[in-house]
Structures are given as structure tokens and as C-alpha cells.
Design a protein around this nucleic acid. Sequence first.
DNA 1: TCCTAGTTACGTACAGCGTACGTAGTGCGC
DNA 2: GCGCACTACGTACGCTGTACGTAACTAGGA
Lengths: 238, 238
Amino acid sequence: MAGKAAEPQVIWARPERTGRGPRPAFTRADIAAAAVRIADTGGLDAVSMRHVAGELGCGTMSLYNYVPRKEDLHELMIDAVGAEHEIREPSGDWRADMIRNAEETRAIMHRHTWVPRLMSGVYGFSPNTLRYLEHCLACLEPLDVPYSVKMELVALLNGVVTTYTANEIATAERTRSMPWSEEEENAVRIAYLGSQVATGAYPRLAAAFMEGSGPIDLEAVFTRALERVLDAFDPDLR
Amino acid sequence: MAGKAAEPQVIWARPERTGRGPRPAFTRADIAAAAVRIADTGGLDAVSMRHVAGELGCGTMSLYNYVPRKEDLHELMIDAVGAEHEIREPSGDWRADMIRNAEETRAIMHRHTWVPRLMSGVYGFSPNTLRYLEHCLACLEPLDVPYSVKMELVALLNGVVTTYTANEIATAERTRSMPWSEEEENAVRIAYLGSQVATGAYPRLAAAFMEGSGPIDLEAVFTRALERVLDAFDPDLR
DNA sequence: TCCTAGTTACGTACAGCGTACGTAGTGCGC
DNA sequence: GCGCACTACGTACGCTGTACGTAACTAGGA
């Protein structure tokens, strides 16, 4: 337990520059941007230490001077896309503002489809995360409830946004990455689902599929979910 | 586009036994159980094809006869833990039943802490998933809304359960896996957070932390979130 | 009944991964 | 100006998923 055991392992607690030694060739922002670029074009699996180092034009192991573990690189990436949140003055209508925030988060995730996969397992206290959280609290100023409830609202809303968008992305990627077309994929899926439902083991599921034929509007489903969550926190509706 | 391009890539659409050739040594259930056992004791990263094959007592490449890709192994794992859902007769009180389902899902995830990480990126139509979905619809029978709304309720609730529990697990694992104690970890965290908040850049965040000192009851937070979501769907409350 | 095609079993091999370690060079603080 | 903390990076190790080839086996069609 003696020695250097208590070093900060949160990358945000580690100073970017200590003053001693040669000037670092890159900033954290450079590294994060390179990793984001790679993930955007080649997917999250393409983000390897070697790859990122190559993109930056340095040796693989040099990266470890900036990023002690790969997990920290992921943290940098999440923080980098968090900067894409456009923080604007709250309008006074907390519902509208929070919906705007949620829609923006969804847009960011669709722009960077690897974000949901990274969300679970990341520390969650990066500078831009704090900035966004502060902004949400600012938007919720008109809502007259204790801060603890506001925090719960933000957490719940973010959770819903993440899972919904993750689902959207997952189905989209699946059809894209397949060598066969979306129609074929759907055909296989429907055939399997139909075969299962046809066994009679899932009567209500069968009824649900009978009821809702035709394509579903994902955007509408998403906003409806948001509205419901906000309803649950709206004192004027209780 | 000719040839065998249109093979089903969903493992559930592929028959477990085709009739030709030697009798397979294992069932899918055997393989899933072995993988779950490994993940429970050694974490999700310990689930490699070699490891699972070793646990089963067969050669690594033999596994590929049963499981075409590792992703499919994950699918088997999710389905296996889905079997732990105890399906009991609906009580007639849909709120109580759904809360019970959610609590049970949370318990399963705490028992198998790798589940949330696998949830995003899995197909979602495994036999036990369908079984659980059917059960949820049965519980929601007393609720007089179209099936589409019921589906949205289930999706929303599952999303909330997953994100909340994932957060609980993430923080728990972080403190456990660290060489330093939870107090030290918290000290580092508080120190960093405090240093950030002290800059004055996050006044509302600071206020929130001032307000809510003391340990938070995760269980209570969780059930409160569930209640809120259910409120949003309860016709009697609108 | 026998043949053969489809399956199982599994060893080998390859490209890629995260990262521990050692060494060489650099520049700030004392 | 000395020394030390830092940067840079090549090498190496153990691990990963899985493509491919080969040998044994068995059920269906002739």
C-alpha cells in the first residue's frame, strides 16, 4: 500500500502538462480528434493505439505518455463529442429546452454512432460532461423541485435517449453491414419472428404485430418517449 | 449475389441440429452455460473462444461448429440469463407486476454484471427475450391502451432499468477493481469534482452537491424512476 | 446395403491487439 | 550548469478472433 499506489487514475485529474521535459507534440484535443476521426470512418473497433498513433504521426508507445490506458482514450473521445453540444441561453420553457437537449444528444449519437457503446463504462465527469450537466440544470431553473429531483430527471432522460438511440443505430448498422440487402434481412427476420409467433406460444405478441403493420416513425416514437418522461416530472400535470 | 449469400446469420434461425454427420457433443445450452460461468467469475473480457472451449473440454475451433461468430456467443449468453426471469401469473395490478419485472431484471443484472454491456449490440429476438416480452404484455392486459403503446412502455422501462443498473454496476466495479480503497477513490473523485466546482464555472452543480450530502439510496432512486415512468403511462393519473 | 455428401472435431497459422520494459534524447527548475 | 523528470519509440510477449485444411463419422439416397 506504500509508494505510488494513490496516483490519480482519472485522466481528468492528471495535469496535461507538468512543465518538465520536452514540449509534448500533441494536446489531448489533438489525440481525441484523431480517435474520433478514426471511429467515425472505421468504427470503434478501428480505434487501436497503433491506429491512433499512426493518424497522429507518432510511434505507438508515445501515445502512452498522454493516455495511460486505452480506457482513457475512450474518455477523451466522449469528452470530445460532448463539446458538440451547443450551449445556448435557456428559454424559460424547461420542457422545450430539455427536449432540445435530448434531440441534440440524439443527433450527436447519430453523427458518432460509437458513442452509445462507449457510454457504459466511462467515468462521466469529463469537463464537457460537467458543462452539459450544468447547462441542463440551468434549463431546469424554472422547475420548482429540489436539485436531487432535477438530477434524477437528467439521468432518466439521458438514459432514455441513450437506449433509444442505441437501438436505432444498432438496427441501422446491422442492415448496413450485411452483405445482403435490407429487404433480405427483414425477410429473414420476419420469417423467423413469424415462425416463432406462429407456434402459438406468443399470442399477445402476435396480436401486437397484427395491430401495428407498416413502417414505424422512429423520430415520433423517440419524441413521444421524451414527452412521457417529462410528463412524469411536470408538477402542473400531477 | 448468387450462391450461399442468403444464409441466415441470426443464430436463432439456424437449426441446432441438422441430422447429418456425427452427434454434436454439446447443446447450445451447454455452451451458453459455460460462457455465463466464465463471465460471472472472470468478467466479460475472460469470455474468449479458447476459454469457453477449454471450459467445455473441446478444441477451440470446434466451438465454431455451434457458434459461427463470437457475437452469436454473446447472443446465447443473453438468452441464457433471460431464462432466469420467473414468469408467474399476472396479478391484475399491471403497475405492481411491471415493477416486479423491472426489479427482477435489475437483480439478474446484478447477478451477471456483464449483461448491460452486452445489451447494446445484441439482436433482441432470442427465445427467452420473446418469452419475457410476451409475459410483459400479459401483465399489461388490464391497461387499456393499444399494443403499440404497451410496447413503448416496455421499451422505455427496460431502457431505464438497463441504464440505471449499468451505472450502479459501473461505479461498484470501479471501486472494487481499484488497488486503493473506496474511501481513497471517493477522496480523489471529490477532490477533482470539488476542484472543478470551486472554479465557479458550475454554480448550479455546486449548489446541487451542497444540497445533497450524505450517501444516496440507490434502490430508492431506482424505484422512484420506475414509478415516474409508469405514471407517464397511467390513464388514471392524466 | 453401400456410397457419399454434409458435419463434427481440431491443429496450425496469421494478423492484429494492449501494453510492459528498456533506452535514448530533451529541456525546465534548482 | 547540473540533474531529473519528461518525451519518444522500438522490441517483445501473451492474448485475441478466426480462415483454412484435414481426418473421422454418420444419416439419407441409390
